[in-house]
Design a protein around this nucleic acid. Sequence first.
DNA 1: CCCTAAACGAGACGGTACGTCATGTCTTCGT
DNA 2: ACGAAGACATGACGTACCGTCTCGTTTAGGG
Lengths: 195, 195, 195, 195
Amino acid sequence: MVNPPNEQRRNEKSRRAILDASLELCTEKGYAAVTVEGIAARAGVSKKTIYRWWQSKGAVILEAVVDAADASTDFPDTGDIAADLHAQLTQVVRLFEDPRSGRPLRALLLIESHQDPGLAGQIRELLVDSRIATFNQRMRRAQDEGQIVADVDLDVVLDQFYGPIYHRLVLNMDLPDHDYLGKIVDYVLAGITQG
Amino acid sequence: MVNPPNEQRRNEKSRRAILDASLELCTEKGYAAVTVEGIAARAGVSKKTIYRWWQSKGAVILEAVVDAADASTDFPDTGDIAADLHAQLTQVVRLFEDPRSGRPLRALLLIESHQDPGLAGQIRELLVDSRIATFNQRMRRAQDEGQIVADVDLDVVLDQFYGPIYHRLVLNMDLPDHDYLGKIVDYVLAGITQG
Amino acid sequence: MVNPPNEQRRNEKSRRAILDASLELCTEKGYAAVTVEGIAARAGVSKKTIYRWWQSKGAVILEAVVDAADASTDFPDTGDIAADLHAQLTQVVRLFEDPRSGRPLRALLLIESHQDPGLAGQIRELLVDSRIATFNQRMRRAQDEGQIVADVDLDVVLDQFYGPIYHRLVLNMDLPDHDYLGKIVDYVLAGITQG
Amino acid sequence: MVNPPNEQRRNEKSRRAILDASLELCTEKGYAAVTVEGIAARAGVSKKTIYRWWQSKGAVILEAVVDAADASTDFPDTGDIAADLHAQLTQVVRLFEDPRSGRPLRALLLIESHQDPGLAGQIRELLVDSRIATFNQRMRRAQDEGQIVADVDLDVVLDQFYGPIYHRLVLNMDLPDHDYLGKIVDYVLAGITQG
DNA sequence: CCCTAAACGAGACGGTACGTCATGTCTTCGT
DNA sequence: ACGAAGACATGACGTACCGTCTCGTTTAGGG
């Protein structure tokens, strides 16, 4: 802890093996059964190497998920706010249902971020905040273009669009499908659309 | 599990001590730091006694929470659906913020119910299903009375009312306050109220 | 460490398995290669059980050696002090050469008692002091019977009889054989025998 | 081992720093607490540099001790065998009691030489054999001069003179003082002096 | 007097063992 | 006879060193 390790000398092969192993194990056995020891064994790596670069198994999984999911961060902008929202919500649902990213993502948001405050911050930073920012940008553009009323509280709108997904996530219910998301988008937009 | 223990001979004093100890520990140190050993020590009870009647620390906490919170389950019915919803949502938020029930409740819904499928079922049964049923009953009464349109999908409505709370819960944001809940109720009702 | 464990509830079968395993491993692989983990695995016992009752692998080996060797502690008394000394020294040499007790005994006296002061004290108590006391008793009887001069310094005599064995032990030389011990006894007795 | 390093290019400053650090650490914390990593850190040297020139921490300490102690190897020859023996035994005791050389010397003879056969050989070569040879030379001269009987077994005599020191060393007893050594010399010489 | 091969410091790496903790089961003893 | 006390096997934790292995950087010798 005294000397932070030197990033330059880091062995990229080990890093990859660790991230891959952690996601594999999470998919195979579930998040609870993932252990630092198990990751080390699967990756052919020493435990020390894991602890040198990460603080906990949660931090490993977080990096693995960020690594695997960061391609899909963008919020589409076709000019049609309803279509874009629908596309974006669909993307989010897919992330949670993807066999590779779903389990670890749920574990991070539901389990780790309520056990480990430090990790919770990193999770917010890396997985949540940028998406919220993008959402707000897109919504403000829609306001500028007159598709959405100007004085609406975007925090509430965010909760209304994403709340149903998280509600069902927490209660272990099936996540919204295509039609269901359509209803959500329609209901909410109905309340905040111009004229 | 081989010999299901005899409920009649159960020592009520031990049961109380265990439930009380588990909530105290959870409040003091956080859910992650609660252990069966810790509960046993605090309650002055043998570990065996805990394992005889519960399957895990989660099951103990669940019973403790049910025990402590079941008074407030009822959905008000004043005839004014908006006021009743607001009151009910406020109740829910309070449960999550209460210093005694908040931490264990969040832990059960966010952590345990995604680690232990068996416990997840019990949590739904004891904490969630009855509330959903009551919600549905109240909503249907509102439909009968013509306050709400008849052909609305109540599952979606449920998600819309409770989603924002869960969304903020998962992301560790401040839960909705009185005004915020008012907005939610207004927005959603606006979409499903009889013209 | 807070609560010393309760001796009465101790599992004798585990204790035996641990002591046996430790001597076997020491004989097979040498003292340096004995580990607490190895003993636990061989004995089919948890590490915790070892740490509950002993402080280190050295303490385990000490008890095992004491257990295995305590039959041979007696100093013979036939009335002939030369013969008795020769018999006793032979016994000691045999202990150091015995395939079962030799390696651990050397390790305790040479290695552990110079690394771990606490253990050193126990080793002295259990393996050394009583033998020195018995030696002194026998010598005093020989003095009473007039076989040995009365004013000799018994500490020096002890060193003279046992010193050669330890000298050769430390320097990894062959231990004295029958004849060699005879010479030692003769030489030393020659200096302290009654006129 | 593949490419034996080039002695000529060796950095003498590093060598000195390593030897000094190893003795300092041994004196400060005891032999058991000396580690290659610790020596490297204290000496401001890389572990690789230590492993390039020595095989183990024991080998480092051995060289350090040889370096520090080799001045005092000589066996005095004043013509008076009793006085010379007393002087020599006193020198040996002093080596073992010296605050700088005592701990590492004991560790080498008692601990390492019974854990590491390769090192044991080097220890004998560098620390023991030459002294035994010198002892034998001096004794043979005494025989030539008629001070000691001709047919005595010098191996036994060696054991008799040095045995007491090693005996007390092994058992963690105070080493012989001036008077004590005098008694030893007198007793043993009494048995082998010309009539 | 530069050039180059080496030895060097730094320290990451795969390992092994450490000593501790909590789990869930099993045993003993006191009441 | 119950039940608290707690010993037990299991398995993961996070740490300390081991001895090996790159990395760039001195540094010393032979051309």
